[in-house]
């Protein structure tokens, strides 16, 4: 018998089902780190202001610290542990590594998950606050450094590795299939 303020749920994380009993107050972030041993996702502010806990829910960016675990049932969670293909790093991870897109590394899992989604959002034609021409006919804006900074602004870096983070995201964008390589890095 389950207490009414907790539930048995199944979370689908990086393609694997995990069944556990959670107190409803448990965030996805705490479930990942404290219950399932997936400590790649980091706790920074725990109030949705720093982006360190960014994961993908059904392919879109989400803040695991503001997402209740019980409300995540039935959704596909991707954490930084699920980004690489075995030992082969994702191009976004490779770019962060080669271009030093970090210093201490604490915010990096969130930066990488966020960057993955930024590239998808841009490819889908989503505008940003710095996109000059919002008309859908204008097509996706060039992924300039300003566009990258704005789209990544939900991920803080206390070491201020921002210039290298922008370069890494731009490099990963250029390596997307079909990309003409016109983005200034």
């Amino acid at each position: 018998m389950t207490a009414p303020t907790s539930s048995v749920i199944t979370l689908h994380i990086n393609g694997e089902p995990h069944t556990l009993t959670v107190d409803h107050r448990t965030t996805l972030l705490d479930a990942l780190r404290e219950r399932l041993g997936l400590t790649g996702t980091k706790k920074g502010c725990d109030h949705g202001q720093c982006g360190a806990c960014t994961v993908l829910l059904d392919g879109r960016r989400a803040l695991a610290c503001l997402q209740l675990a019980v409300a995540t049932e039935g959704r596909a969670v991707t954490t930084v542990e699920g980004v690489a293909d075995g030992d082969r790093l994702h191009p976004v991870q490779q770019a962060f590594l080669e271009l030093d897109g970090y210093q201490c590394g604490y915010c990096t899992p969130g930066q990488i998950c966020s960057a993955l989604a930024v590239l998808e959002e841009h490819a889908a034609g989503w505008p940003s606050a710095v996109t000059a021409d919002l008309r859908p006919e204008a097509g996706p804006p060039a992924l300039t450094d300003d566009e990258i900074r704005e789209r990544m602004s939900g991920n803080l870096c206390r070491c201020a590795a921002y210039p290298a983070i922008v370069r890494a995201v731009a490099r990963a964008a250029q390596e997307r299939p079909g990309e003409s390589g016109t983005v200034a890095a």
């Binding site: 949705g48 982006g51 960014t54 879109r60 960016r61 989400a62 803040l63 503001l66 997402q67 966020s114 989604a117 930024v118 959002e121 889908a124 034609g125 989503w126 505008p127 940003s128 606050a129 996109t131 919002l134 008309r135 859908p136 789209r151 990544m152 602004s153 939900g154 991920n155």
Partner: peptide, 28 residues
């Protein structure tokens, strides 16, 4: 904010939404 009709017919609404919070928060 990404909806074509909003961007064409009410651009200030798209801009207002995009000016708020962060990408992660806007998606949630």
């Amino acid at each position: 904010a990404a909806h074509p009709d909003v961007r064409r017919r009410y651009p200030a609404l798209a801009q207002a939404v995009l000016a708020g919070a962060s990408g992660q928060v806007r998606i949630m």
